[in-house]
Design a protein around this nucleic acid. Sequence first.
RNA 1: GGUCCCUUCGUCUAGUGGUCUAGGACGCUGCCCUUUCACGGCGGAAACACGGGUUCGAGUCCCGUAGGGAUCACCA
Length: 472
Amino acid sequence: MSSVSSTVVTRFAPSPTGFLHIGGARTALFNWLYARKHGGKFYLRIEDTDRARSTDAAIDAIMDGMAWLGLDHDGEAISQFARADRHREVAEVLLAAGNAYHCYASSAELQVSRDAARIAGKSFKGDLWRDRDPGDAPDGVSPTVRIKMPRQGSTTIYDQVQGDVTVNNDTLDDMILLRSDGTPTYMLSVVVDDHDMGVTHIIRGDDHLNNAFRQNQIYQLMGWDAPAMAHIPLIHGPDGKKLSKRHGALGVEAYRDMGYLPDAMRNYLLRLGWSHGDDEIICTKQALEWFNLENIGRGPARFDFAKLDSINSHYMNEASADQLIHLILPQLEQLAGHKISANELEKLHASLPSLRERAKKLPELRDSAFIFCDVRPIEPTDKAANQLNGDIPSMLAKLAEGLALVKSWKGDDIKGVISAFCTEENLKMGKVMQPLRAALTGGRPSGDLMEIMEILGLDECLARVDDVTSIT
RNA sequence: GGUCCCUUCGUCUAGUGGUCUAGGACGCUGCCCUUUCACGGCGGAAACACGGGUUCGAGUCCCGUAGGGAUCACCA
């Protein structure tokens, strides 16, 4: 308990060059889950060593995204750039020990070497100055610092997801540790920060698997213990290709705007690449209990909106009416063009339980809730308009007369009036109910018509019927 | 091209050598319910990439082929 080494420490380390995309969100979720499950620490580290590409707006977007998903991190977000001195210090140690060296090669020379390696079918090693006499250094060129990779043997890393992965050391390149302006590169910074922060488990995208071997060398050279690794497969678009903006590589805030609930998002993301037998609906509390690294899948997963929708509808049914109303209220007011009154709010509350059953996403709920606001006249959909043709309006007008006389405005009594009317007019129930629904709801998905009428109230119902009967 | 990773229904996946004539979920679809739209209930179609091994026995282990992906920056 008290031993530092036994405490799990994970981190999410995005580069602030854009929003928090879906793959990053899942990586963050896994790290968060793993740390929280073990009562450990979960840190957020902003990898902003590339000053030109890092923006504060991106940092905000990432933090907002995580907050929305409910992934809280311990302590303040750490800026990698702020720790540059420390990174440089480690490079100096490596340099002093002869494990790193100055490289004076120009980018043109490097490019030639890279092309040559590719043509020869070999790996680029970037070691043009590895064995050259520093005395040959050209004047006026500030060198980069490169690590001296081993050329013999092989390195095997046990990855918690992929298993043992082995690479021949002679395919590793002498990567740059310090740029010619003296600033540290990501490859150096991650290792130093992960070590200094006491990170015990690195859970990150598959795209870093190759880097693990390069970074591993720094741990070796510095005599540090390397954290456990877990490289999770990337998320692909529905077409199996890399995610693009067209199909899912959106910021998490885009999902929020589309009307998905954070709980649903977490559940979906969790199941995308991780499983617990046949379980599909896994709340966060349960996930905290079950999550592990062993059950992370090894193949890339495709993003599927249909399934997300289905999970979202499940969580919409579990959310409280207050919560749901709170979420749709701003848009509802915008649609209605007025501030929602206490009276409308009451109707909204009354209708919500049945409305949310048929809504998969917030916008659908908002649209169906809309008819409970004071928004006469209701604009009918094309389909609904077709049900209000011919002599239908006069039929409805006649029905309205009967409704006005109902003894109490309760579902059963209303139904009684309607069925009596049907018998009297020798009409089938459906022939009356369908147009009535069209008149009252404009044809929007709603629910039990009697319930709707009861909630709407007699006056509103008559007014809406009047709206469609007086037009013709 | 080099290196590394991956490969079960359309999709997410269960499956850790025999109980797999392969299970669940989403989607699709048939029927039922029904006052529209939905919801719900009960069914259905639908997969072990291919080829060799190993084994009494392979979706499960090994090799190869094919396909997919990642990576090869003074980006992260």
